[in-house]
Amino acid sequence: MMTYIASLVFVIIGTYTVISKENLIKKVIGLGIFTTGIHLLLIALGYRFAGIAPILLKNMGLSYFSSTAVDPLPQALVLTSIVIELSVTALALALIIKNHRLTGSLEA
């Protein structure tokens, strides 16, 4: 439950930053916070208290495995999403540098 609330807080802070700040670098940071909140929510979905790693060993029962292993899929999704966010952020920073050189300001 804590994690869900934390991710909600992240999402709200991110949205506020994107909407209210004029400075483009701060807007990009806001986008980062927003996505981080979503990632946290996604990770919290797959988490299981005192869970085991999702590797099926030979002497392990299938029912025991499915009731205790954590869900590995959200982690894969988050990894993909982080890669995407990395490229978006890199592109945004490149554009901001270019904009700064042309106009001399950090606001669009």
């Binding site: 990395l86 920073l93 490149a94 540098i97 050189r101």
Partner: peptide, 18 residues
């Protein structure tokens, strides 16, 4: 991934100092 990240950082740095 490493070459992509190095590429991003190099080109951003080059642009920023130009």
């Amino acid at each position: 991934v490493s070459s992509a990240i190095i590429l991003i950082i190099y080109s951003l740095e080059k642009e920023a100092w130009k």
